[in-house]
Structure formats: C-alpha cells, structure tokens
Nucleic acid binder design. Structure first.
Lengths: 292, 292
DNA sequence: TATCAAAGTGTAAGTAACTTACATGCATTG
DNA sequence: CAATGCATGTAAGTTACTTACACTTTGATA
C-alpha cells in the first residue's frame, strides 16, 4: 500500500529551489493551504499569475503525477496538519482543544504500542487462552483492576469461565487453587506489586499457565510463562490522564478477537445464548456486540 | 475555522437508508475506503456495477456538491482516520494482521468519535463536574459498569468523592439520597436500561445534577441535564470486540482532564498525597501517573 | 387489482477540467 | 556571438464530471 506522501513538507523542502514561475505557485499554495484545496488548476494558475501548464509542472516537481493527484494529496496533508497544528487562525474553543489533545494523545499512544507488540507473544497468549479451562484475571490499583475486570468481561462471552479480582490476599489464595489447564492473567502498569508476583508464582507452582500484561522489563514480565510487554512513555502533564490502561484494554481486545477466531462455532453459540437472555430487556437485538 | 465534514461517518449514518443502487456504491466505498480515494467516478461506477449518474447522486446524497467535492472530502476523512496506520504489508503474520485490524478499528473509531463530540456538551459537563460535591457513576452490564468504575477511578484523584455502582437496586436507592451539589453520571452503550433511567429521574427529583454518556438519541440521553451522545456504528464482525467502551473511556479522560484544569492547585495537592501514600509500595515514585 | 404519482435509475449529450505536444524565449557557456 | 538547454506559454487533445431527459420501479389509493 502507498503511504500518504506529505506534499506540504515536500513543498517546504523544495521551497526556493523551484524554477522562477513554479516558485510563484509554491508561494501561493503555501500561504493559502486550506483555500488551495478547493481551487481548480485553472484558478490557481490565475491566482499565481502563471499558465496552467506551469501549475501542472509544479505538481510533478513536488512528486505527484499531475494536478489531480496533487490536489488530493494536498487535501489530505491539510486535513491531517490542521488537526494537530492548531494553526494560528484556528478559533477552536477551549473544550475543542481539550478533546483534540486527549484524543490525539490516545491515538498516538495506541499507535506507538502497536509497533511494540511482540506478535509472537500475542500468538502464544492466544493459544494459551484458547485452550484454557478457566481464566483468572488479577490486577491491583484502580486502573489495572479495571482492566482485569474488562478482561473477564470479554472472555466469558467466548464461553470460557472467567473471573477478575483486585484483592491481593484473595488473589494469592485463589492462585493456590489453580492447576493444570487453568490460566492466571496478571495485569499491572508498573509490574511491581508483590500481590501479583506472589500469585503468579503460586499458580505456576501448581501447574497453571501464566500470562502477564505489563511494562517492559518489569519483574512481573519475567515471572510469567507468556509475557506481553509494553513500554509507554507517560505524559509529563500530570493533568493529562495516562493512556496506558487504554492500551491495555486494546491489547485485551486483540487477544479476545484472536481467541474468538480459534473457536468460531462455539463462540457463535455462546453469543447467541447471551443475546437471547437479553431479548426481554432491550428492543434492539440485532447482530450487534452484546452487553451494555 | 472550516470544519472538515466527515463523509465517512456521514456514510455510516446513512448506511442502509440509501436507495438500492446508491447503497451498492456505499457498500463498495465503505469497504474500500482507501482505494476509493484514488478511483475516478467512472471506475467506482464500474466496481459497484451502477451508472456514473448514480455515483454522482450518491455523492450529493451524502452532502457533497458532486463527485469532485466528495472525492476530496473522502480523501481527507481517510487521511485523518488512517494517519497513523502504515498499511499492513503482505508479509504480516496472522497475529500481526490481527493486531493491525483491532488497533486500526480502534483508532478509526476514536477519530470518528472525536468529530461527533459536541464541545458545548463537554464544556457543560466539565463545569458540572468541577463543581460537584460528589459524583456517583452508574452503569449496568459488564462494559458500561467497567466504564463507570473507570470514571470513579479517574475523578477521585482530583479530590472529588466518587463511587461507582453496577447494581440496579442499589443505584435507585443511592439516587434517592443525592441532593443539590451532587452529580449522577449514567453510562450506557444502549441508553435503554430502566435502572439508569429510573436512577437519573430519582436523582433529579431530589435536586442532583445529571450527566449521561450514551448513544445518540437514546432515552437516557433525553433524560439527563447534560448529555454526551455518540453514535458508533458497531462492526458487523461479531468476533471483533466493540470499540464503543474504549471511546467512552476516552471521553471520560477528556472530562477528567478538563476538570483537572479547572482546579489545578487542588489537584496537584491530591496527587501529591496519593503518591506519598504509595512510596512504601513501589520503587518508582517519579512524576508519573499514579496508581497501577 | 388497476392506476397514478413519486422516487429511482440509466443513457447520452454537454461542459468543465486536466494533460500533453510543441513553439518560443531566455540564460548560460564555450 | 552562437549554440545549447532549460523554462514557459499556447493551444489542441483527452479525460472526467455534470445534467437533462426518458424509462422503470415502487408504493399508495380507489
């Protein structure tokens, strides 16, 4: 697939090195980025006071096939840039800026995490989960505990008995009841909590498989059979919420989707049952994700 | 500023309501978003097996002036949605594709949601939250209940007493104890559950403010003082987890960040205290988001 | 069930826009 | 000063978008 070439930076790079008349085109476009998007080749040629052919050549000079191609690439670059540049002429309200910032940061982080994900670890984890008789998600501290609950919420829909716990003592006791065929899934942003380290160690001792989802290189990562590690630079702005738990949830999504695909028929049946159980409660029972 | 009209969500919104032949065009474009960007009207008409005129009418139906206009707007929407996705290369393993798909869908959905967010509603919600004496998050069903917990987890760090409940009976009873200065925050992907509708009505009756985070146009949205509405087309692939709860969490992030900025000094102090309380438990107490 | 109106659809002509070939002009260098 | 090569504009050529009109389907009503 063709990566979107950023014509704006391409124009900036060549700025000053264009042939004289093409430079006029560049000047005009660069100082009327947003407007140029909506103009035809002809209109641009008039605005820059050059011939249409020059405009066309200009397009080829910046690496496009012709004006058509240039026009679309410019529109795309402008669309992307305007989002994050928050250029000077923008009159976004404060709350619009807030939304852009937070969503931007989240998207950014998701993308970062995606490239860190070790696909081999994902594959191993899916294979362990798909064969699990039972999965116990554990996590402590508000965030990770919620991710653990989310994991349980995801996987029980696939017909696998699941549970989630945030109580360190309970976790250790629970771990000691697990055995071959069971899976303990430990979640921690720091990878340090003794509760989790203990629980994983206990569970392994009794023959259960263990999966960890945590910070790269953390003690917890080293202690589990399969370890999914992510290193997310937390934003320095302490008012900006951390994105790591969102990434964790996204990873749980990946694992759930992968597991579901390994047992398609079973899953369909379980989802059907769950949907049936909700018919009485809701008007809408189409083929949609289930549960509120 | 010129708002970029998001034709992709426009298409999704009208999906299923198009005239028969135009629907074919919609189907093709929606499932070949990136490719459609580079096709001419003629090529699209062939691919969808309709006449060019139908393609042109389709463009007008989704709110564009004609194909030219549509083509550019589509390119922009696609660019914004896919800006972080390097396309999947052919050599990707199955699990790599899985990761790409799930993350891609999430990023896509986040971008979509951003355009739908009504910044005025966000502003109002932040203002209500920042002045709250206490916030009760309520939700039912695995997903929304978790989002509610996440909300509580976020806001208590800002020094506001919070709680989260998933028990419908408890929610109603709780609601009847609220009064002026308290806030009830109801979360639901469907916006239908009677538990939430009742609780919000009861809380309002006793003078509490109410905020809802739910599907656009749902009953719950109409019943609250401030309503944040999102319309997310759920993916048809039932094995693919729904992205809506991730969007909900992202929105909670936005609200928390906005609230934090309204009370910077207070928040700093509370975060300091929380961090202090954790020093004994962890090696790492740098300026990072707190809590596991 | 027949009829009619309204909406949907395709064909084809018309128009606007992009592309390319070619001729002219200008600058640089031997 | 002449020759070469790059830069530019003109105009013809081609492609692509738009629109008018006629035919078809759909749905409502008698």
């Amino acid at each position: 697939m063709t990566k979107i070439i950023d014509v704006i930076s391409q124009m900036r790079k060549l700025d000053g090195k264009f042939p004289k008349r093409e430079q006029r085109v560049a000047d005009f476009v660069l100082s009327n980025l947003e407007r140029a998007t909506r103009l035809t080749q002809n209109e641009i040629s008039e605005a820059a006071d050059v011939s249409v052919a020059t405009v066309n050549r200009f397009c080829q000079t910046v690496g496009c096939e012709g004006f058509r191609d240039f026009n679309i690439k410019l529109a795309q670059s402008v669309a992307v840039s305007l989002q994050y540049l928050g250029g000077p002429s923008r009159t976004d309200s404060e709350s619009e800026q807030l939304v852009t910032q937070v969503f931007g940061a989240l998207v950014d982080t998701l993308n970062l995490a995606r490239f860190q994900l070790d696909s081999e670890a994902v594959e191993q984890a899916v294979s362990v989960l798909a064969n699990a008789r039972r999965i116990s998600f554990i996590g402590v501290g508000g965030g990770s505990a919620n991710v653990a609950r989310e994991g349980a919420n995801r996987f029980f829909r696939l017909g696998i008995p699941t549970e989630a716990h945030a109580d360190g003592y309970f976790q250790r006791m629970l771990a000691s009841t697990l055995s071959d065929g069971d899976v303990i899934f430990a979640i921690s942003a720091s990878g340090q909590p003794a509760e989790l380290l203990d629980s994983v160690a206990i569970a392994r001792q009794y023959g259960a498989r263990s999966i960890s989802l945590t910070k790269a290189g953390a003690p917890l990562a080293r202690s589990a059979d399969v370890s999914i590690e992510i290193d997310i630079p937390e934003d320095q702005d302490i008012y900006k919420p951390s994105a790591s738990r969102l990434v964790f949830i996204a990873i749980i999504d990946v694992l759930a989707a992968g597991t579901a695909r390994k047992r398609p028929e079973l899953v369909k049946e379980y989802l059907r049952r769950i949907r049936t159980s909700m018919i009485a409660l809701s008007e809408d029972t189409g083929p949609k994700p289930i549960g509120d």
